[in-house]
């Protein structure tokens, strides 16, 4: 569906050249939700704008829907953009138009006749759950409602691809979840390919199938979301995974415990997929006669299944603790001893 081949984008600035995107290759399948995560300045904004030709690559090629976006221009590119929609962090609605008129805008651009436009707008308003707000102006809407208008507008011309540029970064956590559910629902119902960029691992965890981690213009890691969560390679990826698995308070608490209870071992257990359903703790206690003190626990739902972490203190006969550790490994649970 989307093929990015060895793309580099260099900006010329007063202080010399700036490589925003550095030899990036990506392949995104039809119907998947693909996330690109990175801190600000990593080049993800530029990368997503290469996909609809708002930016032109310095070298390399971008193919979307069998069209080489990186080389077409003029009328052909404008036509292609009608099938590659985009939603934005700050919504970018026209304040001078009502909700209905904003949603009708891309249809006007595509030259859809008025009667048909009105019918389509009505459907879209229902789809995004904004019935009754048709004649409101953007200034009268909440952030979440504005993004719903943005989504409706993006879907107007039945696109093949939806690009989300930090679409939930300006929203509160609850609204973020409702917008993410809407996106995930649209993906399933319409079979739409979604590419999103974000700096929040929470967004990736909640709706993405695959993820690429970007740093200084390069993709440093990519894979299925569950795989990346289970086994992050790059340092930056580990940081992102930590965003959603270990809370900062937990870290503080563990430090405290390590200091006050030097006995035994503090172990971080990572459960992925079906292993998270096993009654591990009670098994360890019964089988090895050791004490298990639970320090921190967390479970996150990803698109491919649950992912959990549990931090426990194993105390008792050192030999039995060792045995317990061995046993955990055979149960397909990652166990990692935490030291000071």
């Amino acid at each position: 569906m989307i093929e990015v081949k060895d793309v580099t984008k260099v900006y010329k600035t007063k202080n010399g050249e700036l490589t925003a995107v550095d030899h990036v290759s990506l392949s995104i399948q039809k119907g998947e939700i693909f996330g690109i995560i990175g801190y600000s300045g990593a080049g993800k904004s530029t990368l997503i704008r290469l996909l609809n030709g708002l930016e032109k690559p310095t070298s390399g090629s971008v193919v979307v829907n069998d069209l080489e976006i990186s080389s077409i221009k003029g009328k052909e590119l404008r036509k292609a953009r009608q099938k590659i929609s985009m939603i934005f962090q700050h919504f970018n609605l026209l304040w001078s138009r009502t909700v209905a008129e904003n949603i009708a805008f891309p249809l006007e651009i595509a030259g859809v006749p008025k009667a048909e436009r009105e019918k389509r707008v009505k459907e879209l308003i229902e789809l995004v759950g904004l019935k009754g707000r048709e004649d409101a102006y953007p200034s009268q809407l909440s952030g979440g409602q504005k993004q719903r208008v943005g989504i409706a507008r993006a879907l107007a011309n039945n696109p093949e691809v939806l690009l989300c540029d930090e679409a939930t970064s300006a929203l509160d956590p609850e609204t973020t979840d409702s917008i993410l559910s809407l996106l995930s629902d649209i993906n399933e119902r319409l079979g739409l390919t979604i590419v999103l960029i974000t700096h929040e691992m929470h967004v990736i965890r909640k709706i993405c199938h695959r993820v690429a981690v970007m740093q200084a213009g390069r993709i440093v890691e990519q894979g299925s979301v569950l795989e990346v969560f289970r086994n992050p390679q790059a340092e930056i990826t580990k940081n992102f995974v930590m965003q959603v698995s270990d809370s900062r308070e937990a870290k503080e608490a563990i430090k405290h415990i390590l200091k006050n209870y030097p006995a035994g071992k503090v172990v971080k257990l990572t459960f992925v997929g079906n292993t998270s359903g096993q009654p591990v703790i009670s098994y360890l206690i019964k089988e090895f006669q050791i004490n298990v003190n639970i320090l921190y626990g967390n479970i996150s739902e990803t698109m491919d299944g649950p992912y959990g972490t549990l931090i426990v203190q194993l105390d008792g006969d050192p030999e039995n603790v060792e045995k317990a550790m061995e046993k955990l490994k055979t149960m397909n649970i990652q166990a990692e001893v935490i030291t000071k």
Binding site: N52, L54, R78, R81, M86, H90, N92, L93, P106, L163
Partner: peptide, 10 residues
């Protein structure tokens, strides 16, 4: 951003 949005719509 609004101008960019319009461009992104073709």
């Amino acid at each position: 951003g609004v101008i960019e949005a319009a461009r992104s719509m073709g």
